[in-house]
Design a protein around this nucleic acid. Sequence first.
DNA 1: TAGATTGTTAATCGATTAACAATC
DNA 2: TAGATTGTTAATCGATTAACAATC
Lengths: 264, 264
Amino acid sequence: MATGRSTQHNPNPAGGTRRSRGRGIPDATVARLPLYLRALTALSERSVPTVSSEELAAAAGVNSAKLRKDFSYLGSYGTRGVGYDVEYLVYQISRELGLTQDWPVVIVGIGNLGHALANYGGFASRGFRVAALLDADPAITGNVVAGLPVRHTDEMEEIVRDERVSIGVITTPPGAAQQVCDRLVAAGVTSILNFAPTVLNVPDGVDVRKVDLSIELQILAFHEQRKAGDDLADEDGEVPSAPAAAVVSGRGPEQGHGYEEAAG
Amino acid sequence: MATGRSTQHNPNPAGGTRRSRGRGIPDATVARLPLYLRALTALSERSVPTVSSEELAAAAGVNSAKLRKDFSYLGSYGTRGVGYDVEYLVYQISRELGLTQDWPVVIVGIGNLGHALANYGGFASRGFRVAALLDADPAITGNVVAGLPVRHTDEMEEIVRDERVSIGVITTPPGAAQQVCDRLVAAGVTSILNFAPTVLNVPDGVDVRKVDLSIELQILAFHEQRKAGDDLADEDGEVPSAPAAAVVSGRGPEQGHGYEEAAG
DNA sequence: TAGATTGTTAATCGATTAACAATC
DNA sequence: TAGATTGTTAATCGATTAACAATC
């Protein structure tokens, strides 16, 4: 949501309905489990033994009805009149998310962003292990980043195979992303986190999630514009639906304020 | 969001129903407009004059029914039997997203990630202008990053005011994020893009979107685990709902494979 | 006119929410 | 028992999708 940020293909790789297998968990719920887990981990570090749905929801930034509904998909892990046992819930959510096992990941493209991710602390603490850093540029390979040597992308297939890597992170320039993706998938990777601003095409059974700074900013700009518009009279004053022919020659005011009033 | 990335508070700051004002556009549609815009820009660069909903949808990674429905919220910008004029649609979507005006942003926290964002090309090309880079560390202030001097956070309020900054990007450590957020908001910022793994509390009227690497990876791990489980018999073999009392003492196997079979 | 493709309708599906019975 | 809080139900809402009439 990206979401926001969102799976490009195969949000539900098992196919069929959204909750096909056994106690299937809705996508929206899965996306919130990490939020709950983070809040619970903070409580755990403060040695808080139990927490109510109301308190935990506040800490996670959701409402309590949603939280209880989400937890109901996992099972009945609370105690009526008491709340949830923090440690127990940390474990159950971790298990559900697959974080009780070790996930080797490779990061491909060690520019500024790859560098930042390699140094990101949240990796190791949550069951993810950086198996290798890869780059195609000989000027970069051999450098040590975050304690790891940057290896050449020539070694990609070997590393993915030997280290049983199933998750790849792509931080290359957009032009290289699809090719890197293809090679990762061919080598056995089945989940891709894509930071390159490109749509990746992948075969069935491969999950792609993307993180796109530019998209997030554009969504903010949209709402920001709305706010600014609300300050004026009423922005929806029937902008004439200009006939296409009249605009084909130029694309209209680029950075200017042709049709609309300034929003600042 | 995203999630996916997702607005924490006020996904619809105008309040009321999801589509309150005039020709209000659903959140899901707004989140896809940047995708269409990117695909259209690529077509524009190749001097493609028109495109059908089918072609454009394929390029953007969505289905064509959804695309046409999305565009219908913007107006009737297509021509039956022909398709959409690329340049005209680029302009209309840009205008709808507020990209025909200039958005000054500040980036607070110039570590690895802030550094990466400052160098990110997608910024400038889409109406966003980095008005300032800020950091609290005197060892970092004064450095030139992406052609801009890193200024001290002491100057935050002055810069936000003078440059009319309404969008702030937070790339600080999690412990500093809320305080930075509070100061940005107090200074006049009304949209925040948060890369720190913290829930930010903001007053009504302020939008927060967050980008969280760790959450994206955890969602991938969940699906990855499912895939692995599908290879075995049937993973849903009634894991006994362990009584809370039995687990309170320890949190169960941490990185181990206590309850579950290995998924690799 | 015939072919192509949009814009819209209506059905379906998933997500959210409030309310409350169950029960600790 | 009385108070507190979960887990679930049912209503509502938003998003997706296929189909097709409108129309270029």
